[in-house]
Design a protein around this nucleic acid. Structure first.
Lengths: 150, 150
DNA sequence: ACATAATACTACTAGTTAGTAATAATGTCA
DNA sequence: TGACATTATTACTAACTAGTAGTATTATGT
């Protein structure tokens, strides 16, 4: 058993790495908790995300969902297939462009989102409880700056 | 096509939700980019994470890796199986406790980490380029506070 | 008409989860 | 104390979901 000393890669690099680790942990902890809540409604996080975007934005193509959920066309296809199978969404063929079609949330899909969303929102609020209003604003702005820069 | 108005769930709840979205986007963008780099060495992000922790911390059990990588015993088992198959790690049985064993990085595994890590670190640095030293400190502290509170 | 672009799918591999098996540690009582 | 039962720990398996690379189909531009 040998411990390799964690060598330094320079001031800014080390700073970026430790910040990245905190970002990773924060994201993971919150997502893991919400995942458990969402699964009590028999949805995976990916399925929830697709359903939620269809609920809030209206009918969308696979491509549009891909962009909004930051997925890839391949995995959205799979998630959509499972949502169709379970009756949460339906497909409306496009009249002109035969490559694409619109996906639409069904009453069953709407129902489950309406049931789970308010508590989902409350859960998120509770995870951020430790931060003051100002701190949350600062965090929001820094993350936004980070995220927009690439 | 019907747009459901995004209703408000209250000041703090809305704030938490928008901050969560930024956290999600920041994490995803960085992870997606690094994933492409890591894959050019024929490793998935999960495989890289396990290998990296074995490189930096020395031999570990599945349970220890699970904690350090925030995974679950089941998925670490699978990742470890693939790393074994590809010759990146080897298994040392525990003398006393027959339930567990130690995992150890092989020379081949060490080699690939040493090849990819310096540029990985530089990549991370570049993603955080847009933030000043002070901003990065603030971001680090806020994320740490968030992450430790649950 | 031909080349290029856009769209989403399929097939394959990896990851995730719930449930379980194996082993070890602890408790109970004669 | 020793035998047995109970509980805890550890990690695996099986079944399902997600992710990726490559491809087929349709549309658009020249």
């Amino acid at each position: 058993m040998k411990i390799n000393t964690l060598k330094s890669y320079g001031f800014r690099t080390d700073k970026a790495m430790t910040t990245w680790i905190q970002l990773f942990r924060s994201f993971n902890k919150i997502r893991a908790k919400e995942s458990i809540y969402i699964q009590s409604f028999d949805l995976t996080m990916n399925q929830f995300q697709v359903l939620e975007v269809l609920y809030h934005r209206g009918d969308l193509s696979v491509g549009a969902i891909t962009k909004l959920t930051m997925g890839t066309p391949g995995n959205v296809t799979v998630v959509v297939r499972n949502l169709k199978r379970d009756g949460f969404i339906s497909v409306i063929p496009h009249s002109k462009d035969k490559r694409t079609s619109m996906l639409s949330i069904t009453p069953k899909g709407k129902d489950v989102i309406e049931k789970l969303f308010p508590e989902h929102a409350k859960n998120l609020e509770s995870y951020f409880e430790v931060l003051s209003d100002d701190e949350m604003d600062t965090l929001f702005n820094l993350l936004r700056k980070l995220q927009k820069s690439h």
